[in-house]
Simulated scan of single mutants.
Amino acid sequence: MKKTLLQACALCVGATSIQAGGLDRSGQGINIIFEEGSVVQLRLGYASPDVSGEQNGVESGDVSNAFFSPGLAYKRSFTDKLDFALIYDEPFGADIGYSADYPLSQNPTAAFGGRSGILRASADVDSLTALLRYKLDGGFSAIGGIRAQRASAKVVVPAAAGYEFDADADTDFGYLVGVAWEKPEIAARVSLVYNSKITHDLSSTESFNVVPPVPAGLQTIDDTTRVETPQSINLDFQTGVAPKTLVFGSIRWVDWPQTVVAPAAYVGIVGDNLVDFDDDTFTYTLGMGYQFSEAFSGAISTSYEKSNGTEVSNLGPTDGFWSIGVGGTYTVENAQISGGVRYTDIGDATTTTGGEFSGNSAWSVGLQLTYSLN
Rank of each mutant, 00 (worst) to 15 (best):
90 E>L: 07
97 G>P: 01
89 D>N: 15
89 D>K: 03
108 P>V: 00
83 D>F: 08
100 A>K: 11
89 D>V: 07
107 N>L: 05
106 Q>A: 03
88 Y>P: 12
78 F>Y: 14
105 S>M: 03
86 L>D: 04
106 Q>G: 02
88 Y>N: 08
96 I>Q: 14
98 Y>P: 08
99 S>T: 05
100 A>R: 14
103 P>V: 07
79 T>H: 04
98 Y>T: 07
85 A>V: 07
106 Q>T: 15
98 Y>A: 03
85 A>T: 05
102 Y>F: 15
78 F>A: 07
99 S>P: 05
108 P>S: 11
100 A>Y: 11
89 D>R: 13
96 I>Y: 12
100 A>Q: 12
99 S>W: 00
86 L>Y: 06
85 A>D: 05
103 P>N: 04
102 Y>E: 08
89 D>Q: 07
93 G>C: 13
106 Q>Y: 09
98 Y>M: 04
77 S>E: 13
95 D>G: 06
94 A>S: 15
83 D>W: 10
78 F>H: 10
90 E>A: 15
81 K>W: 04
96 I>M: 14
96 I>W: 12
94 A>M: 12
105 S>V: 04
103 P>C: 04
97 G>R: 14
84 F>W: 12
86 L>H: 07
84 F>T: 02
108 P>N: 02
80 D>W: 01
105 S>P: 03
80 D>Q: 14
83 D>R: 10
108 P>E: 01
81 K>A: 11
89 D>E: 09
100 A>W: 02
101 D>T: 15
109 T>W: 09
108 P>Q: 02
101 D>I: 01
100 A>L: 02
77 S>T: 05
109 T>I: 00
93 G>P: 10
108 P>D: 00
93 G>T: 12
106 Q>K: 12
84 F>Y: 15
78 F>N: 09
103 P>I: 03
92 F>H: 07
93 G>I: 13
102 Y>N: 02
96 I>A: 14
90 E>F: 03
82 L>P: 02
96 I>E: 09
